[in-house]
Write a protein that binds this DNA or RNA. Sequence first.
DNA 1: ATGAAAGCGCTAACAA
DNA 2: TTGTTAGCGCTTTCAT
Lengths: 342, 342
Amino acid sequence: MADVAERAGVSTSTVSRTLRGLSTVSPDVRARVEKAARELNFAVSRQAASLVTGRTGNVAVLVPTLDAWFMGAALSSLAPLLRAAGMELNVYVIPDLAERTSFFERLPARRNADALLVFSFDLTDEETARLDSLGIPVIYVSQHVEGRPSVYVDDVAGALHGTRHLLNLGHRRIAFLATQGASGFSFSSNERLLGYQQALTEAGVPLDDDLVTAVQVADRRGIAEALGTLLSLREPPTAIFAEQDEVAVASVRILRRTQIAVPERISVLGFDDQPLADWFDLSTVAQSAADIGREAGELALRLIEDSEDEHQRHVVLPTHVMPRATTAPVYRPQGEGEEGRG
Amino acid sequence: MADVAERAGVSTSTVSRTLRGLSTVSPDVRARVEKAARELNFAVSRQAASLVTGRTGNVAVLVPTLDAWFMGAALSSLAPLLRAAGMELNVYVIPDLAERTSFFERLPARRNADALLVFSFDLTDEETARLDSLGIPVIYVSQHVEGRPSVYVDDVAGALHGTRHLLNLGHRRIAFLATQGASGFSFSSNERLLGYQQALTEAGVPLDDDLVTAVQVADRRGIAEALGTLLSLREPPTAIFAEQDEVAVASVRILRRTQIAVPERISVLGFDDQPLADWFDLSTVAQSAADIGREAGELALRLIEDSEDEHQRHVVLPTHVMPRATTAPVYRPQGEGEEGRG
DNA sequence: ATGAAAGCGCTAACAA
DNA sequence: TTGTTAGCGCTTTCAT
């Protein structure tokens, strides 16, 4: 910076003012400084600046992984937004328990970011409390944490509408495939189940525990077993509502492999509308990760500006039923017999 | 830090030494300092430290987007590696030309990172030169830039082996679907075409320009058109080698929709082995984004340690043919007639 | 509108 | 082994 100052024939204060775009610089001086800076390929050191301003210019993001569609989509929309605000994006990936423990123990984001966005974790109360001690705004994405700023979709309404779609197609035996993570059910999972139940109740269809099963996303064998159980019920389902697109697609593949036509014989509905759903022409309940990312980013920037800003700390985004090729009116056998059972 | 020093009854130098794990601290003092630091919830400010050490503790990554499988997988393996080395991961997303221009103009990574990993761009010479001026190691991932450290797979060999697989199945009319990005063909694209041609030549199969077409990844209509052209050739292909899994899967869907059985009638081979390939049981040439990410990260750390380290600046990773359900021996019509033409 | 000087929180000599 | 001191490169009063 001293070099630039010298070259432009001004003081470093003036260079600083110019480069930060303060209006208290005369046009000609500004021009000279900018020219000098360009010629010297000069860029302000954030480190040095942050030392005196107390702001780092970083926004940190905590994610379980980066190869889930949700993270990719959310961060892709978040990043340009931060960039436009002159912020850097810092990513912490916590793939396993060890990394997670270490993160919450050492809190590497401390003093190193102006805000933290926490993506899709089911945090314990202790962990949440620990994050409170960071001294910066913490925004929870895809989860509601009481009293803390959060951005998420209305999972209850999403599942409610999805289930209604199936009911409207004439289905009465509708199975629900919940997804169970390593650490049990997520908040979303519970909410989606709730929406499913609400829709059934509202339609006067009795709840049947046999129709609700839990599976793990990546466990294809487990999904097959779950389907097997459903298919061998006295009254098997005519429709399956999976809480996640991956499980829905896996189900479609398993059913079709067994020559059970989807959607003619059994309808399958997913939740998320990730790219995979489109590839498989899967009917699903869509949520927009891009919107979530954007809203979270904007909320973060707002809270950095004014952490006391109590205005709209919870952002709830809508979902949309996306009808595609795996849901259809309920199967009505032409003749008699057992045809009606999937 | 002063607080910690006071609480532990030592100087800030000692605190600094302790917290950096230097061995020149007596055990009891170390214990006292660590206790004080823990009690005060103290964390060293990287900003202040970097100001004096000249190192930022950041590794920057430049990516076109984050929702491509490759970035997700590569970064997911890269991140823990950096974390283990005490480095932060800084992500720059450059989705469009405007952001790209702005990035290379302002070079926000300047003075803000100790190394830069450039993912899958086809940079102009000017852009590369600009990055040289950053004054930090720049590692090119999934592309070879002459004289600069790079990590990539052997695309020529990959395509060569893939094509050989098809030749070994008896195919002689093998089409190649190249992928064209917004800015023309990528380096990989050219290399893969080359491997394809080498395999044919080595097998004595004449090259036929009619069998090589360019499409755009997301343009399903364009892919359908390309397939239409191939299917209406005098001698249509019996196998299609797509340079990217997405295009291969799109092709499979289009062919099957037209009742052209894959792989019985036409074989389809992809390249990448991204998750989508597994979902569609697509035969493909596998590359490991995770390995690439890891190698790139290790190379970066090595170059940060010693930027003069000339040792193995180019890392070339292998590919593997992954046979699944979309390649099969060439179709031999039983009787006479035109059956043989797809 | 501009400059001089102080100091942000840390590390790295150097001394002890 | 520990403490003292002098900056690192900026921003920010406070003068002018």
